[in-house]
């Protein structure tokens, strides 16, 4: 039985420029202890998906138009605020991208660390502080007893991200949502942080939803991947499958454009054009204007995600019709 199941989530933003369909019919399942990756470019709706689940979308201008997010029998999208508050920060917690802006610069780290404990548990301040020291030690901060009383600006970027992780994990959540937790960090520090999240996940048995734009991080970290484009999931599979047998031209093209897998001297593969404007209606496949394989039907027919192989889904009409086979070979890796 899945721990969290998101069904047909739609989050729209009502702006002056029109209705922006930031998340358009997104569904996924998260099993206990699993690591799931959501990959996509900026504006593809990966963050909005997770913010919607936790009720962090400002309404207005945002509006959740439909769907359910069932966590332990409770629909997070439909339940009342009090109920959601009991879950958020306790059983589901989140790490944000920029540790500089997501810690309160006016408060000592100690205050911010113990807040989830004071809110969710009947615990004395002293006990909470003891736990905070332990949690800082667990994320590899030396001299935690003294550093607990520092202000955020007294830490370096990597250290701040460790504090964020300690804060997210202090209440031993069942689900951890990590929204680009290493994007603002240097590669050597990124390696430290990824290793840390992995270790804590093993210790606590937490399920992790990992949001990133970096396919390298996905390959290193996730078991299951969902590829998002223009507010929709276009492909989902186990990590090995996503790389070995891409079933959507966008996924294949994305892998092609990374210099890491490329031979020197050959021009890099590029995806022509720009991502679509989400405030305009998109009748067919949202990737069709940039797709090498697009046919007239791709621009007109509505596309749905369909299972093609075991746990491998694609939203490509032509792949579903059996007209495209080896996308990896076709673009020439």
């Amino acid at each position: 039985m899945p721990l969290l199941s998101v069904e047909n989530l739609r989050t729209y933003f009502y702006t002056r420029a029109g209705v922006v369909r930031a998340v358009d019919d997104v569904s996924f399942l998260l099993e206990p202890g699993e690591t799931l990756g959501i990959v996509g470019e900026s504006g593809s709706g990966k963050s909005v998906t997770c913010y919607s689940i936790l009720g962090l979308i400002p309404q207005p201008p945002g509006r959740i138009m439909g769907g359910r997010a069932i966590f332990d029998g409770v629909d997070l999208l439909g339940c009342d605020k009090e109920r959601l508050r009991l879950i958020r920060g306790k059983r589901i917690s989140m790490i944000f991208q920029d540790p500089m802006t997501s810690l309160n610069p006016y408060l000592r780290v100690s205050e911010q660390l113990i807040e989830p404990l004071l809110v969710h548990e009947k615990i004395s301040r002293r006990k909470a502080l003891d736990q905070a020291v332990t949690s800082l030690e667990e994320v590899g901060i030396q001299d935690a007893g003294r550093r607990l009383h520092f202000y955020p600006h007294e830490f370096s970027g990597g250290m701040r991200q460790r504090v964020m992780i300690a804060m997210a994990l202090i209440s031993r959540p069942e689900v951890l949502i990590a929204d680009e937790p290493t994007t603002a960090l240097d590669v050597t520090v990124q390696a430290q942080i990824l290793e840390l999240i992995k270790r804590r996940q093993r210790d606590l048995g937490t399920a992790v939803i990992f949001i990133t734009h970096d396919l390298g991080v996905i390959a290193a970290f996730c078991r299951e991947v969902y590829v998002m484009y223009a507010g929709r999931i276009v492909e989902s599979a186990a990590t090995g499958e996503i790389f070995a047998r891409p079933m959507h031209p966008y996924n294949a093209a994305l892998q092609q454009s990374i210099p890491a897998l490329h031979q020197k001297g050959k021009p890099l593969f590029t995806i022509p054009g720009l991502p679509p404007d989400l405030s305009k209606p998109l009748p067919g496949c949202p990737f069709s204007p940039r797709c090498t394989y697009a046919e007239p039907k791709c621009r007109e027919q509505a596309v749905t995600l369909q299972t093609m192989a075991e746990r491998h889904q694609t939203a490509c009409l032509r792949y579903q019709a059996g007209e495209l086979n080896d996308l990896r070979a076709a673009v020439g890796v």
């Binding site: 050597t188 990124q190 390696a191 970096d214 390298g216 390959a219 290193a220 090995g240």
Partner: peptide
Amino acid sequence: ALVSAVPIPDPIRER
């Protein structure tokens, strides 16, 4: 260290 810290977008080599 710098080179080994970069995640490779290929799960087989990466692991």
